[in-house]
């Protein structure tokens, strides 16, 4: 995906603002080009789990759809672990089209942002595919 630097900074700033809890949100755009970041509420509000507020999710997905945009990615943070999908991330990855972006604040001064395509129903070993993120 192509992610303008200002949007990457917004995602990282959101992760830092919610620390020590995980943050979550959506990235809208066209095709694989991100154009805006939509922060949402983590209804779970813990350092180990995110559940996007369902009403915000519904409203924002409708808004993105109605605007003719694409849901490019769903993002969340890992506050104490690497930017790599956990078992829970894979088990709950219902969405096969948008990418799953993970921001790690494991090393707070060196945040890491990576993107993955997740397929929860695929065989073991084929559920996680990293996708390149071009930040410019």
């Amino acid at each position: 995906m192509k992610l303008p630097e200002s949007l990457a900074e917004q995602v990282i700033a959101h992760a830092r603002a919610e620390f020590p809890n995980e943050c979550c949100g959506l990235i809208a755009g066209h095709g694989d080009v991100a154009t805006r970041v939509l922060p949402t509420t983590n209804a779970e509000g813990t350092p180990f789990m995110y559940v996007m507020d369902p009403r915000e999710q519904m409203e924002l997905m409708d808004a993105i759809d109605d605007a003719g945009e694409d849901l490019v990615a769903i993002y969340h943070s890992h506050t104490r672990s690497a930017a790599y999908p956990s078992k829970t991330d894979v088990e709950l990855a219902f969405f096969d089209q948008p990418l799953y972006v993970i921001v790690s604040l494991q090393h707070p001064d060196e945040p890491v942002l990576r993107a993955f395509r997740l397929a929860r129903s695929a065989p073991d070993g084929e559920q996680i595919a990293e996708e390149p993120v071009e930040i410019d």
Binding site: E22, E44, Y50
Partner: peptide, 12 residues
């Protein structure tokens, strides 16, 4: 009726 899979996951 609207069906909406959650967006959820987490480090644990």
């Amino acid at each position: 009726v609207m069906i909406l899979p959650a967006m959820a996951g987490g480090a644990r």
